[in-house]
Simulated scan of single mutants.
Amino acid sequence: MLYRQFLLLITLLFTTLISTCNAEQITIHTNNWAEFNAFQNNDATESLSIATNMHALKDVYSSIKFKYMTTQRTLQYIDEGHSICVVNRVKTKERLEKYIFSQPINLFLSQRLYQQADSTPLQSSNNVINLSDIFNEKPNAQILLAEQVSYGDAIDAELKKIPEKNIMRRYSGEQDIGIANMFVKKRAEFAILYPQQVFNFITNIDARSYEINGNPPYILGYLMCTKNPANSNFIKKVNHQLNSNIEELLKLHLNFVDPTDKIMLTHYFDQAFKHKLTETP
């Protein structure tokens, strides 16, 4: 009798342990194969995105299950109520109503409009352009855009004004690398890219760039999660890690930026992170 009770107790404890582990496991999606492989192999040397996210997730790494998934499918799963987190998301008003966010994890110098170097330069004021105006000047040109990706409120608002015939959309995964590859292959005259992305790209991108009017000087990347208690607790742990070593986070950023931009990036980092990382999550 005592033996049977002992076996029952062990079974209950084991079941509880398994349930607890499953409940605490966090699923994180990325639409980038290089990021997925780096996360799986705990390798933080590939890019700014990978290095900063690995830094933020260091204390909770063992509780994470990483999955490769296209942005479209990830958003579909989240909208269906699945418990998922996604790296490198931009905060927008619409997303803030639906999801929860970590404190900022990475800072990218704001996207610029890149134009093929062998095309006629745009007419601009101090190298600043309005996205919605460029196709009045070049009615047959096209711009490469990643589907299901937000470029931030300011750019998203401008993109809605561009005629569909002037847009070449990329629907599959690997959005950042895919758009850059398509631009290098001259699939379109224009693309919206990050300066750090261009600097770290494996192939030289032969293009001129323009500042986008109304776009803030930098954009912050966050961990975005479905709203539920487990994810809220997870984000608190991530935020604690971010708060614990801000100087290390700055060093990681400086490893992946054009040397000519280091002073500017440091200024923006101090402006954004040292304020944001003191906010209550």
Rank of each mutant, 00 (worst) to 15 (best):
L13G: 13
F183C: 06
T260C: 00
T74G: 12
A180N: 04
V87Y: 06
I179C: 06
P216Y: 05
I202N: 13
T120S: 05
N88H: 13
N231G: 06
Y77M: 07
T11S: 15
N130Y: 11
S232P: 03
P259H: 06
K186E: 13
D258F: 05
Y114S: 00
V149Y: 14
N228F: 01
R4C: 05
I105M: 03
N243D: 07
Q241N: 15
L223C: 08
M182G: 00
G214T: 06
I10A: 12
K93C: 02
F66N: 00
Q115Y: 05
I84N: 10
M182F: 09
D118F: 10
F14Q: 11
N181P: 01
N233P: 03
D133Y: 11
E247Q: 11
I78G: 02
V86D: 10
K251F: 00
A188V: 04
V86C: 08
M54Y: 02
V90F: 14
K65Q: 12
K160L: 15
I18E: 10
T92C: 04
A191M: 06
R169H: 12
A38D: 11
V149K: 13
I105R: 06
M224Y: 05
H29Y: 15
I263Q: 13
Y218A: 15
A154S: 13
S110K: 03
Q196S: 11
P229L: 07
F108N: 09
L254V: 09
K65N: 14
T203R: 14
T120G: 01
P229R: 10
M182D: 09
F190D: 00
Q123C: 07
S119I: 10
G152M: 08
T278L: 14
R4G: 03
L249W: 02
I202L: 08
V149R: 11
K91G: 00
I155S: 01
D59C: 02
I162K: 03
L159N: 08
T71L: 14
F190A: 02
E97V: 04
Y210L: 08
F273P: 01
K236Y: 10
L75D: 10
K58E: 13
Q76T: 12
L48R: 13
Y268E: 11
H82C: 10
L250G: 02
N233H: 15
A191D: 03
I155F: 01
T280D: 06
S102L: 07
N181K: 15
N243W: 00
D261P: 05
S150R: 05
K65P: 00
I219A: 07
S150I: 10
R112A: 03
K93L: 09
L109T: 05
Y114P: 00
T70L: 06
A51R: 08
Q103E: 12
I143V: 12
T203W: 05
I167S: 03
L17V: 07
L265G: 04
I202P: 11
F273N: 01
N140P: 01
Q197P: 02
S232D: 15
I143M: 07
C21T: 08
L17A: 11
D156M: 09
F273E: 04
